[in-house]
Simulated scan of single mutants.
Amino acid sequence: MSAGLVAQYAVIATVVAASLVHALRKLAPKTATRAQAALAATLLRPQRGGFAQRLGRFVQPRGASGDCGDGCGTCGTCGPPPAPTGASSTQPVRFHPRRSK
Rank of each mutant, 00 (worst) to 15 (best):
A3L: 15
A3S: 13
A3W: 14
G4T: 11
L5N: 10
L5A: 11
L5T: 13
Q8H: 11
Y9F: 10
Y9W: 10
T14R: 12
T14V: 14
V15M: 14
V15F: 15
V16L: 13
A17K: 05
A18E: 07
A23I: 09
L24H: 07
L24P: 03
L24I: 12
L24Q: 03
L27V: 13
A28P: 07
T31V: 15
T31C: 14
A32I: 13
A35T: 02
Q36E: 04
Q36H: 02
A37V: 09
A38L: 12
A40L: 05
A41Y: 02
A41N: 12
R45T: 02
P46M: 04
Q47G: 05
Q47T: 08
R48H: 09
G49R: 06
G49V: 12
G49S: 09
F51C: 00
A52D: 05
R54A: 10
R54V: 06
R54H: 06
R54S: 10
L55A: 05
G56C: 03
R57L: 05
R57M: 01
F58M: 07
V59R: 01
Q60W: 01
Q60S: 03
P61L: 08
R62W: 13
A64C: 10
A64Y: 05
S65H: 07
S65N: 02
C68N: 02
C68W: 08
G69E: 10
D70H: 09
D70K: 02
G71Q: 02
C72F: 14
C72V: 10
C72Q: 11
C72L: 10
T74I: 03
C75K: 00
C75P: 06
T77G: 05
P80K: 02
P80R: 01
P80N: 00
P81Q: 07
A83P: 15
A83W: 08
P84D: 06
T85P: 11
T85F: 09
T85A: 11
G86R: 02
G86F: 05
S88H: 07
S89A: 03
T90P: 02
P92W: 12
F95M: 07
F95V: 13
P97T: 00
P97R: 00
K101S: 04
K101P: 12
K101N: 00
